[in-house]
Design a protein around this nucleic acid. Structure first.
Length: 585
RNA sequence: GCGCCCGUAGCUCACUUGGAUAGAGCAUCAGCCUUCUAAGCUGAGGGUAGCAGGUUCGAAUCCUGCCGGGCGCGCCA
């Protein structure tokens, strides 16, 4: 319907140009059509007259009136009116409202899909948490957001590739290795040790050490390094230096080969845990891209050569710098340190260059808000490399977990985390997936666990799933009453659906494709979550007001068809968000 | 100190990227009611969109300054 009106508007513009009312060299604009908030403003509205007025040198009101005069007749349109200063309101014939039911039932699970993306290749990178510990609730939001967005883009005709970037290089991984090793020594030695500052202290490290011990026995035993046998951890800068010394000591005590073995064991154990966690959460990836692979095949050298060719690299104080301030960053960044080592930034550049080389047209990076400082320098580098527009960052703000009034998760600084697994066990996967994407990702959000786990109408997930289950339960009622659903009869009689609630519901169903499209264009899943709440709300209001299983077969089957369409749309929307659509609750 | 994000009803949040009288859900208040399994339904009140300017036919949305909150500012990863 929307497309049809847009075509008619283009035809009307053409007619005006032919008649010389509008300058013929003026570009034809595709009108933006929206759904007015108020019923008195028609079913669709366009501001096209305002847009044309700028170039056409006439008042919007006059142009609007002329468009209406040239607007071709259509069997679907009841009337077209000018309102306000130049809005054009379109009134669709109420008899055609019901047509959406047949469309939904025919298209089934594909209703809402489109060819918006024209098969363009999108790489969506998300979660990408360092493999040094379990995922926490902050990662959960990125995971839910990315997985849902990937579904939405996929349904919108994009060819979607989901990727997790594994930062398995650098000091943090060495620290992980030492953390595991010290716990291993503790297990063998039977005496408690003091873990130095900034090592990983979670219980999961002990589990990994235990598994490691079971695998290798005493082969990795050595005397306790000096600073691990102290009574108390050293704090501040001195603690960091002590940690560096410990890393060196551990490497020399174990030898490079054994040290690497511990590190790899730890990394693999944690990655396995993360993968299980995400899989249970319904979040899957097409690839787990390991940072370490850059160092093997010369990608680092290649990206530096590419950048050097643009003339944006320079030497200063013995280091190699990228002139990122030229491209909007606040200062320049080091690519290779004075000691010859490449920085994390260089590695990230190499990774992003591979994304382009792998032939993706659109890159979407979903990152936590705490990493926003990194976005400008990467964007700057992509500009320098000649891809000014390819990279899109979605910044996901932290979710504050609450249970009623009680605050559960602390800020990053305090280091007290609730794990994603704990959250899932507390509220269930469905509620977690939905609550995470209920708000615009750039918004700080409140995640009320008490609400999420409650089975009441106040809980949006419950209400939406219930709409789906409610339709299923109505259909189960049919047989005991001696009736059968006759879809042909139902579709023939959709004209009988003309109560206020039915018209609203039909309108809501026809909005669904627009909603998915909006979500795809914004790279945001939350419009779908919002839509589902509205759609379910409309259905429940309808259901409370009118009886579906009435005596007269034509009306009964029409209402059953409508209900079935609602069930389908709810199921489609929930599936985009990775939430189940149960038949019974 | 500098940079980025955010500020909308009592609370949690929308407004389809500059359009019409800023909308939902909770909570509150007033009525109704016992249902195709769902203690529910209907209606009402509630707003200077942080504050102050600016841009234009038109601003919650764009630009500037202040106020308040979050996050980030290494030749760390």
């Amino acid at each position: 319907m929307k497309e049809k009106i847009q075509e008619l508007l283009i035809a009307a513009q053409k007619a005006l140009k032919d008649k010389g009312v509008l300058p013929s060299e003026m570009p034809t604009v595709k009108a933006t059509l929206e759904r007015p908030r108020h019923k008195a403003q028609g079913d669709y509205a366009s501001n096209i007259a305002w847009v044309l007025a700028k170039e056409g040198k006439q008042s919007p009101r006059t142009i609007a009136e002329q468009i209406i005069r040239e607007f071709p007749a259509s069997p679907f349109i009841e009337k077209v009116e000018v309102a306000g200063g130049g809005f054009i309101n379109f009134y669709v014939l109420p008899a055609t409202y019901g047509a959406v039911i047949e469309r939904v039932l025919t298209e089934g699970k594909h209703y809402g899909s489109s060819n918006l993306g024209q098969n363009r290749k999108v790489l969506i990178e998300f979660v990408s948490a360092n493999p040094t510990g379990p995922l926490h609730v902050g990662h959960g939001r990125g995971a839910a957001c990315g997985a849902s967005l990937a579904n939405i883009l996929s349904a919108s005709g994009f060819s979607v590739h989901r990727e997790y970037y594994v930062n398995n290089v650098g000091r943090q991984m060495d620290i992980l290795a030492v953390s595991v090793w010290l716990r291993y020594l503790e297990l063998l030695g039977g005496q408690a040790i003091t873990l130095p500052l900034n090592t990983y202290v979670g219980h999961y490290i002990i589990d990994i050490a235990q598994a490691f011990m079971e695998k290798v026995g005493r082969q990795f035993y050595a005397l306790l390094p000096g600073c691990a046998s102290k009574q108390e951890a050293t704090k501040g800068e001195a603690g960091e230096r002590e940690l560096d010394a410990l890393l060196i000591e551990a490497k020399s005590l174990l030898g490079e080969e054994k040290f690497t073995a511990v590190r790899t064991f730890g990394e693999e154990a944690i990655l396995k845990d993360i993968q299980e966690d995400l899989t249970q959460f319904g979040v899957t990836f097409d690839a787990w891209y390991k940072e370490q692979s850059h160092f093997r095949d010369g990608k680092m050298q290649k990206v530096i050569e590419r950048l050097d060719a643009t003339g944006d690299l320079y030497h200063h104080d013995g280091a190699l710098w990228f002139n990122s301030s030229k491209y909007g960053d606040e200062k320049d960044r080091v690519v290779r340190r004075g000691n010859g080592e490449l920085t994390y930034f260089a590695s990230d550049l190499a990774y992003h260059l591979t994304k382009v080389e792998r032939g993706f047209d659109v890159l979407i990076n979903i990152v936590g808000a705490d990493h926003h400082g990194y976005t400008t320098r990467l964007t700057a580098a992509m500009k320098a490399l000649g891809y000014p527009k390819i990279l899109n960052f979605i910044l996901v703000q932290f979710a504050v977990l609450t249970r009623g009034k009680e605050r559960l998760s602390m800020s990053t600084r305090s280091g007290v985390f609730v794990t994603l697994r704990e959250l899932r066990e507390m509220v269930g996967n469905d509620a977690a997936r939905f609550f995470y994407v209920m708000r615009k990702s750039s918004q700080h959000m409140n995640f009320d666990c008490e609400l999420a786990r409650s089975k009441s109408h106040e809980n949006p997930v419950y209400t939406i799933q219930y709409a789906h289950a409610r339709v299923a339960s109505v259909f189960k009622k049919l047989a005991p009453l001696g009736w059968r659903y006759d879809q042909t009869m139902g579709l023939q009689n959709v004209g009988l659906l003309k109560t206020k609630e039915e018209e609203r519901l039909l309108g809501k169903l026809s909005e669904y494709p627009d909603c998915v499209e909006a979500a795809a264009k914004q790279y945001e899943p939350h419009p779908v979550a919002h839509y589902l709440q509205e759609c379910a709300g409309c259905f429940h209001r309808y259901y409370n007001e009118h009886r579906v299983l009435v005596e007269e077969p034509p009306l009964r089957n029409a209402r059953l068809a409508l209900s079935l369409a609602v069930k389908q749309v709810v199921a489609n929307g929930l599936s985009l968000l990775g939430v189940s659509a149960p038949d019974t609750m």
